[in-house]
Amino acid sequence: MSDVRPRIRLPRSAKAGDVVEVKTLISHNMETGLRRDGAGEIIPRQIINRFTCEYAGQQVIDMELHPAISANPYVEFDVKVEGSGDFVFTWYDDNGEVYTETQSFEVG
């Protein structure tokens, strides 16, 4: 899929020790494998099956996704930030592709 595009929303600022809310979305059809095309053939399943986030080298969340997750999967969660660092977001596609987005975050 060429139109896969991740989007991340982080707070503008945070102090050391704060818990920040992270919102992520990636454009993806999340084809369930249950639908049929015009010719009556099953459209093969192709979903994002795993999403992970780490911050400053530390694992935050590891999510397993099934076809019941909506198209353009949205995930919101909380991260404890002790200091500045990089957010690394990774999405794993059924077709073997891996999409990664990195964003640095200032804590001050």
């Binding site: 818990v19 935050v60 969340i61 590891d62 397993e64 969660f77 909380d78 404890k80 930030v81």
Partner: peptide
């Protein structure tokens, strides 16, 4: 969802 040490909640 599997939460690790970096999770804030």
């Amino acid at each position: 969802f599997n939460f690790s040490e970096g999770a804030g909640s």
